[in-house]
Simulated assay, not measured.
Amino acid sequence: MTILKKNWFFVGIALMFGLAFALPGLGEVFREYRILNVAIFLAFFLTGLSLDTSTVKEQARQTKILFAAILSAHFLIPSLAFAFGNLLFPHHPDIVIGLIIIASAPVTVASGTVMTNVARGNVALSLFICVLSNFVGILIIPFTLKLFIGIGQYVELPVLQMLISLSLKVLLPTIIGQLLRPKVWPYLQPHKKYNSIFQQCVVLLIIFNATSKASGELLQAGPQLLLMVIASTVALHTIILVINFLIATKVIRLDLPSTAAFTIHVSQKTLTVSYLVWAGYFANQYPLGLIPPICYHLTQMIMDTFIADRFRKKALQVERNSAVDRDGKGNLKR
């Protein structure tokens, strides 16, 4: 029972996949009544309420980190995804578009900061990256998608319409939440764990909705394509983690806590915004397009848990070594 409680989210994923194949028509009901759109609006509203940005101003002065985070998250990663997609899936435009969509999305809101905290990293920097990427990402994602998807000549995108839509669905509820935070959050803070549960439930609904939409195509494509997508997202996320680690340590030369924050958070992408883009502009023509974002989301959740643990162990070792050096008895203690 304890194992089930601890891993309920992964059990939920399996249930969503099973339900999507068993009752694909239920997904149509969700789409018809825009149930998921309402849930996503509430999720970003709660994000605005819970996001403590009081330390962000201090980090905003670090322009080299600002530039590196934006360059990596919104230009380098989409370029890698574009190359990966066209190299590995030249005959599956759904998969190529899906990889570009998740790569162009802003970084995650809660997950990256939580894992940075687990890694004993610079949480203030992680929050800074989160706020910066989500604000900038929503503004430039239509142009990034138009650039890379336009190269492949898959579909014509209404850039202005997408920009307005994403701003209303993502930025607006987040800003409203931030404005109400001083008055509302003190009453909700004792129950903040339910905010995390709600956010994860929204992700489960996205998985169900996307899988039910693509169930026929998935059955037709067979398990080999799905395994290839999973392998490609694992490889892509691994390369992104390595690149961001090298940027943090070799290019902008951050300390260990800031390296953990940069490596983890800049490498993570939000499934929620990816869903809004796919559902609004690609779902009918490319029903398999959200499968790569789902696979990437699950990949980063699993892989970054181990990455965070490695950073945590390294931080603890550094702390122990510093303590030994301070008391002047290093030789005796060793």
Results as ranks from 00 to 15, higher is better:
Ser111Tyr: 04
Val96Arg: 14
Thr63Trp: 13
Tyr33Pro: 03
Ser133Glu: 10
Val29His: 03
Ser133Met: 08
Ser104Trp: 06
Ile100Ala: 04
Thr113Gly: 04
Met16Trp: 07
Asn321Arg: 14
Ser133Cys: 14
Leu49Gly: 04
Phe262Gln: 01
Asn134Glu: 04
Phe128Gly: 09
Ile100Pro: 05
Arg326Lys: 14
Arg34Leu: 12
Arg334Asp: 08
Leu15Pro: 01
Ile129Arg: 01
Gly216Pro: 05
Val277Trp: 08
Leu180Ser: 09
Leu76Val: 15
Glu58Gly: 12
Pro93Lys: 08
Leu227Val: 07
Met1Arg: 13
Thr238Tyr: 08
Pro293Ser: 01
Gln189Asp: 12
Val202Asp: 04
Ile230His: 06
Val96Lys: 13
Leu246Trp: 12
Thr249Leu: 10
Leu171Lys: 06
Phe9Ala: 08
Pro142Leu: 08
Asn7Val: 00
Leu218Ile: 14
Glu28Arg: 08
Ile239Leu: 15
Arg120Tyr: 10
Leu316Lys: 13
Ala68Ser: 13
Cys201Ile: 09
Pro292Phe: 05
Ala315Glu: 09
Leu163Gln: 03
Ala214Leu: 02
Gly216Thr: 15
Gly85Ala: 06
Leu288Lys: 01
Gln268Ser: 09
Arg320Ser: 11
Thr233Tyr: 04
Val38Ser: 11
Ser50Thr: 11
Gln178Gly: 12
Pro106Asp: 06
Ile140Phe: 05
Pro173Lys: 10
Val123Met: 02
Leu227Gly: 15
Tyr154Thr: 00
Ile230Val: 15
Ser274Phe: 09
Pro90Glu: 01
Met228Ala: 14
His92Asn: 15
Leu227Ala: 14
Thr63Val: 14
Ser258Gly: 08
Lys329Pro: 01
Trp8Arg: 12
Gln62Ala: 06
Pro182His: 04
Lys64Phe: 00
His265Trp: 03
Asn209Leu: 10
Gln200Glu: 13
Asn122Glu: 09
Gly216Ser: 15
Ile175Gly: 02
Phe208Cys: 01
Leu157Asp: 03
Phe282Arg: 10
Leu19Arg: 04
Leu49Phe: 05
Ile240Leu: 08
Gly98Leu: 06
Gly328Phe: 11
Gly48His: 05
Leu288Asp: 02
Ala235Val: 10
Thr144His: 09
Val229His: 12
Leu172Met: 13
Val29Asn: 03
Ser54Gln: 13
Ile176Ser: 05
Leu288Cys: 02
Glu319Leu: 12
Pro182Ala: 06
Gly25Tyr: 06
Val234Gly: 09
Gly25His: 05
Pro186Arg: 09
Met162Cys: 07
Ala22Ser: 14
